[in-house]
Amino acid sequence: MPGQAPRRRARGLTPSPVPTEDQILWHRVVVEVADPRAAEQLARMHQCAEHDVAPLATVRLTVTGDAGAGYQVFDNGDLLARVGTPRQVLDEVFARAHRRAFELASLKGWVRFHGAVLTVDGTRIAVVGDSGAGKTTLAMAVLAGGGAVETDESFVARDGEVFSVARRFHVKPGTAELVPSAPWLADAPVLDGDPPLQLVDPTEHGLAWRLPVGPVDHVVQVERTSGASRLEPVGASVVVQGLIAESFPVVESRAVVVRQASAVVAGVPTHRLANGPDGVAPELLRSLTLRRGG
């Protein structure tokens, strides 16, 4: 865990000639880093998602130093942390940028939920469930099948509108074998760790990555099963329970979390997807689009 440094003004910064820019929710995130090793590490998380809303604020993070002497991470000129490795630089920058984005979203009345947002045959589907339920594998299968994936991890919601958090999809080892129709998975950069994760940005593989703001057409609660995959209707209140359990409040009250979780499913068909090892869950999602079409 990188140590937190006291706030101090940056002096003598040597920013990289071309800072990287990402958008996360309503924030433009500008990262300047001079050290090539830290820059290479940060590039692994850089994403090019196309947002339908313009950023309202900018967070400017600057990284100085090198692996020999250590790194300093500055947030808009204030010293944020001193860390020793490029990976710790990435962790600091990533956490800070997202924290700022989530705080602003929270202040605007949006609540963050753990879940994926996918589009299959024009039908936008929120998929909520615990870690390990198979959301990312499902998302990669949808992407490989011609659908779109906004996020495999989290979205914010307010009054029934959903806005996905831009983050490279975090793909666990073994997923490529489960989704053989996604050969591009093998080309994604790897984030060292336990387990090492492949970091997928669809735009690097010629695929669209657009993040709209609006309601979803279905909400699916996904659960892992050792049996056959199946999709069945489930009460909205069951899905609301799942959403509340998988919420990440920042400053908002629990009442707001409950209200916004309820708003996500209001008037929206809700389902439970038992996600088994047979690999048919993506096809079951496709059946939702057929139902919509009558």
Binding site: G235, A236, S237, V238, V240, Q241, I244, R254, A255, V258, R259, A261, S262, A263, V265, A266, G267, V268, T270
Partner: peptide
């Protein structure tokens, strides 16, 4: 805090910090 969903009500009791799901 009473929230209507398709299969009932989701009620948050602010005082007790409890969520209730009513069919």
């Amino acid at each position: 805090e009473v929230n209507e969903v398709d299969d009932g009500l989701v009620i948050y009791d602010v005082e007790r910090d409890r969520v209730h799901y009513l069919n």
